[in-house]
Structure formats: C-alpha cells, structure tokens
Design a protein around this nucleic acid. Sequence first.
DNA 1: TATTGTTATACTCTATAACTATA
DNA 2: TATAGTTATAGAGTATAACAATA
Lengths: 177, 177
Amino acid sequence: MYSACVPGTSDLGERPGAMAATGPAESVGFTLAQLGLETARRFGEVVGALGLEPRHFALLRAVGGAEGQSQQVIAEYLQIPASTMVAIVDHLELESLLERRLHPTDRRTRTLHLTAGGKTVLAEAMTLAMGLEDQICAGFEPAQRDRLLAMLRQVAGNLDVSLAALPDAGGHRPAHV
Amino acid sequence: MYSACVPGTSDLGERPGAMAATGPAESVGFTLAQLGLETARRFGEVVGALGLEPRHFALLRAVGGAEGQSQQVIAEYLQIPASTMVAIVDHLELESLLERRLHPTDRRTRTLHLTAGGKTVLAEAMTLAMGLEDQICAGFEPAQRDRLLAMLRQVAGNLDVSLAALPDAGGHRPAHV
DNA sequence: TATTGTTATACTCTATAACTATA
DNA sequence: TATAGTTATAGAGTATAACAATA
C-alpha cells in the first residue's frame, strides 16, 4: 500500500502505515486523494469489527444488489481478475455468507447468492457504514451535505468514474433477444 | 492494492485493475473513497510521464518543503517505515534528484536535500498536477471550487486528517531550547 | 543504553498463465 | 474453438527484526 502517497494512491488493508500526507491543502485533487484514503481506512476498521475485509464487503454488496449474477459478471464489475474473485468467493462461501449455485442452462457458470447470514452481515455492515457516514458529515446540514454530494458527483463525471450499481440477473438479457 | 474496494481502500500504483466500484452514489464516504482512488490513479499516470512514481513525488515534495530534515523526521511525516524510506531515498539519490548530507552535529543522522535536477522535476510534476486539478474541477466556477475545498477541509477535520506541510529544518529547535 | 540508518527476510497481495469442464 | 471457473506460480511491495555506527 503506497497509493497513499496520494495523490499517488494506494491501497490500504488493515495494514498499519501508508504513505499518507502529500498534498497542499489548496488542491482539490490532493485533498480528495487523502480523504479517500482515510475514508477507506476507517471503513476497513469499521467492517473489521464484523470480521470482514473491505473486499469481502464489496462482494457481498455487489451480490446483494445483483442476486444470481455469474462470478464473471461480478468480477468485471468489481474490476478484479477471475483468480482473485475465486479467492474472495471461496472465503465468503466458507463462512457461509454466500453460495455458488449452478446456472440453470450453462453448466460452466456459477451464479452467486447471499445466504440468510450473508444478508444479515451485509445489513449490519451497511448500518456501520452509515455510522461512519454520519461521522464524515458531522456538522453538515442536510442541504449542505446534498450540495457536497452534488459537487462530488460532478467531479466523478469529470473523471469518468461510474457510481452506478450492477443490475441483477433478471435485468440481463442476451443481446440477441 | 485492494483498498479499492472502497471504501475499503487501496493503494494504487500504476498497476491495472483495483477493486473499485463499491458504494452507493448517495454516500459521501463511498464517493470520497472512490474519487480518492481514481484521483490517485490519475496522478500516478501523470507523474509517470516524468519517470516518477507517486511515492517518489511524495518524497520530493516533502523534502522540497522541508529542506535539510532528517530521514527519520520525513519518514514519520509520510507515515512510512524507515526501511521503506531507505529504498525510496536510494532510488531518488541514484537518479540524482536528491542527496543525503551529513548532519552538522550528529553523525548518525542524514539530512535530505533536493538537487537542482530534483527541484526542476518537482516543479514539472507540480505543473502536471495542476493540470490534473483543472481537469478534476472542470465546470466549477472559482467560487464553487472554493466552497468545495472548504467542505472537504471540514470533512478532513471530522476525520482528523492533517493537511499540513512539514516545517523545514530551520523551524525545528530542540524542545529544551 | 538508546537512536539513526541500513540490510536481510518473510509475508501478503495481485496478476498471468496453464488447466478442466463445459459450450 | 471459445468460455467459466480453478489452480499454480511468480512478482511487487511492505513491514519486522537484526545489525552497525554513533550518541
């Protein structure tokens, strides 16, 4: 993890120090990079209380929002290679938070589904995430927070960052239909 | 780098895919984490054109703003372990962008100084960073950009993130003086 | 005896590529 | 022949701890 050098980046896990401080406070870019890093780090701590790592949460959330999708589709959405996907799914399946099921027509494909426990843990994680959100936005009036979000969305647009969720399997039809 | 799972984190280098998309667009936390990640990634691309990695830029910048500080002080500021610091300093010294000098009174200590070339490269990198800044803030009027920065600073305060630079060696006096 | 910097090393994470089974 | 998923493996990056010189 050295993305921290921000605006270099860096990935953080629950690993200790990242190269963090880097930018002038007058720059939106530096500030965003630094806040993003710290936000991610805090989130890791928060979901860590549930025994989850950020990547596990990310997968639970993706599956929760797109029940029945294939591993491949979800891996592409999360922008991780197939081999990494296998490891994460293995981990969560071992903890009985999600399960692989056979695809109804294609026996090569595995579809992913949350278990009851997975839904519970995901809900708990979302609750904790909302608590962090409140901490992040402390002192903001609702209208101010909305303005901040609107500006951040504009920045996302400027950077071609998609904030969209993955449609569930039912929404996906073969192109030729 | 998997901090990308955002708000997991992650560090990014110039490495390809990071687990990126994760959060609902209605959350400041998720959005910040995602934008921070992308900003850091873009910055890595930008300074990469100068042959720098984000961590190299971070060190050049820290030294440029605190000429003559010891490796230890700067490593602490950057929140990286001493052994990592050695590797980065080695790299930049090999490229003649900075140099180690002997401390005037303590022969254990090395002080860090930018070379003329280092100053040039740092200035070029700052110019490129400003170009990225313009891209990030495209469509914002100056007053809007100021409002965004002010809000981000408030978030930084909420998260105890320091945006301060490191004082240079001259500003450091032993506590007992 | 404590501290600065260095070196050696072990560990984690990630991605590439080979492999199996299906289509 | 191509694709979904799996496994094996090699590489990068990081941190921990032992070490040398100096205080």
